[in-house]
């Protein structure tokens, strides 16, 4: 998939654990893991908004487009 999810990078920058973020944004760790691994087919705006709010970042910091893959 040409969309790369850089959530783990942002989590490392904010020194936050996946479990903590999952609890804060109200999704399961399993779903967050799917999102991090790039297996997710889509992301809801509400989830994206919650992630951006908690990590204090922009959607572009989490998602990246790469035509090569």
């Amino acid at each position: 998939m040409p969309i790369i999810v850089n959530l783990d990078v942002m989590l490392a920058r904010r020194k936050m654990k996946s479990k903590e973020l999952a609890e804060k944004i109200g999704i399961t760790t399993a779903n967050l893991s799917i999102l991090k691994s790039g297996k997710a087919k889509a992301i809801r705006f509400s989830t994206l908004e919650a992630i951006c709010r908690e990590l204090d970042c922009q959607p572009g910091d989490i998602l990246e487009f790469s035509a090569e893959e």
Partner: peptide
């Protein structure tokens, strides 16, 4: 259904 399940 699969797409729905993989929508986070």
């Amino acid at each position: 259904q699969e797409e729905n399940d993989l929508t986070i």
